[in-house]
C-alpha cells in the first residue's frame, strides 16, 4: 500500500497534513525544501506518524517559485509513488498543487474538506457557488489535494523518521527571478489564530465609531475583524482583517458579528466558529439564522452596555 506525501510552505501546517495522513491509515512522508541547511525544518516535522522526510536543498529553491518547486516535488513524487499528495491551502500550496497534478496527469482537489478514502480514490467536500453549496467530489485514482488550514490538529511527538537527501535534483531552466519582497507588517493582529473575534460590518456609520468595538475587544482579549465593505471598499481596516470567502477563514471559539448582515460570502469565512453571536437592527438579517445568540437592536446602544457588563463580570 502506497502512502501519502505531504508538503507545506509552513512546517506547522505540514504537521496538520501529517495528522490527516495518519488518520487515513497511511504511511506519511514529508517533503522539506529550501536553499539552505534543512535540519531545523526536518526536526520540526519529525513527529509521530512520519516515516520518511525527503530533503531537497538547492539554490533554485531559495524563493520557492512555482517552477523549481514543482520540479522538486515531482522528483520526490516519482521516487515515492504515493497514492495521494497533500498541500495546505495556502496561496503557495494552491499554485503548486494544480501544476504538479497537470504534470503527473492525476486529479486535483483544492480546498478539500473532510477528505476520505473511497474504493479507488479520495472523496472530499468543497464549498462552491460562493459558499451557497457544498459539492462532494471524488478522484478516480491517485490525486493531489489542498487542505484548508487548521482542519486537523498538528501531529506531535518526537520521532526519528528516515531522512533521505535528494542530491541529484536538477530543476528545469527558469527565467523567473525575484526582485524584492515586502513582508506584511507583522502587526499584533492575526485573525486567523484568534480565539475571540469581534467583527464590524456596514452597520457602523463611520470609521471613528469602530472605537466602541475596540473597547469591547479589549475587554474580551479579542481581535477586531470585518466584513468586506469595511476593508476593500472603505479601507477602514486593513485587508488582513477581512473574514469571508475572499478574505480569511476563521475558526475562533467566539465570533461576534456586529452590524453584519450575514451574506453567504461572509458566512463562509466564519461558519466553523464554535459560538456565534450577532447584533443587528434587522431581525430578518440572515446572520440570525447562523448564530447561537443574537440581539435585535442598535449596535450603538448595545455595544457599550455589553462592554460594561462584561467588564464588570470579568473583573477587568
Amino acid at each position: 500500500m502506497a502512502g501519502v506525501l505531504v508538503y507545506s510552505d509552513s512546517s506547522d501546517s505540514a504537521l496538520e497534513l501529517v495528522t490527516l495522513g495518519s488518520k487515513l491509515g497511511r504511511e506519511v512522508s514529508v517533503v522539506v525544501l529550501g536553499s539552505e541547511d534543512l535540519s531545523d525544518q526536518t526536526k520540526k516535522v519529525s513527529v509521530n506518524g512520519v516515516s520518511t522526510v525527503y530533503q531537497i536543498s538547492s539554490d533554485a529553491l531559495s524563493n520557492l517559485l512555482a517552477g523549481p518547486t514543482v520540479d522538486a516535488l515531482e522528483s520526490v513524487y516519482s521516487r515515492v509513488s504515493p497514492d495521494y499528495m497533500f498541500f495546505s491551502s495556502t496561496k503557495k500550496g494552491k499554485e503548486l498543487a494544480p501544476r504538479l497534478a497537470a504534470r503527473l496527469k492525476i486529479g486535483c482537489i483544492t480546498d478539500a474538506m473532510k477528505p476520505e478514502l473511497n474504493e479507488n480514490g479520495i472523496t472530499a467536500e468543497r464549498l462552491v457557488l460562493g459558499g451557497n453549496a457544498i459539492a462532494t467530489v471524488a478522484s478516480r485514482g491517485p490525486a493531489v489535494a489542498t487542505i484548508p488550514l487548521r482542519a486537523f490538529e498538528r501531529a506531535s511527538g518526537n520521532a526519528s523518521p528516515n531522512v533521505i537527501k535528494i542530491e541529484d535534483f536538477q530543476p528545469r531552466p527558469t527565467r523567473t527571478i525575484v526582485l524584492g519582497r515586502k513582508e506584511k507588517q507583522k502587526g499584533q493582529v492575526n485573525i486567523k489564530d484568534a480565539e475571540i473575534i469581534v467583527s464590524a460590518g456596514r452597520g457602523f456609520k463611520k470609521k471613528e465609531d469602530l472605537a466602541i468595538l475596540e473597547e469591547l475587544a479589549k475587554v474580551l482579549n479579542a481581535v477586531v475583524g470585518a466584513s468586506r465593505p469595511l476593508t476593500s471598499d472603505l479601507g477602514w481596516l486593513p485587508e488582513d482583517r477581512q473574514v469571508g470567502l475572499s478574505g480569511t477563514t476563521v475558526k475562533p471559539k467566539l465570533y461576534i458579528a456586529v452590524g453584519i448582515s450575514g451574506q453567504i460570502q461572509h458566512l463562509t469565512g466564519m461558519r466553523e466558529s464554535k459560538l456565534v453571536v450577532a447584533i443587528n437592527t434587522d431581525k430578518n438579517a440572515p446572520i440570525f439564522q447562523e448564530c447561537d445568540y443574537g440581539i435585535v437592536g442598535d449596535l450603538y446602544a448595545i455595544i457599550p452596555e455589553l462592554t460594561k457588563d462584561l467588564k464588570l463580570q470579568l473583573g477587568r
Binding site: G107, A133, I134, A138, A143, C291, D292
Partner: peptide, 16 residues
C-alpha cells in the same frame, strides 16, 4: 480524474 458526486446546501445547527 475528478468527478462531482453531489451538491447540497450547507446546514446550520446553531442555537438561535
Amino acid at each position: 480524474k475528478v468527478e462531482v458526486k453531489s451538491l447540497s446546501v450547507p446546514k446550520s445547527a446553531r442555537k438561535k
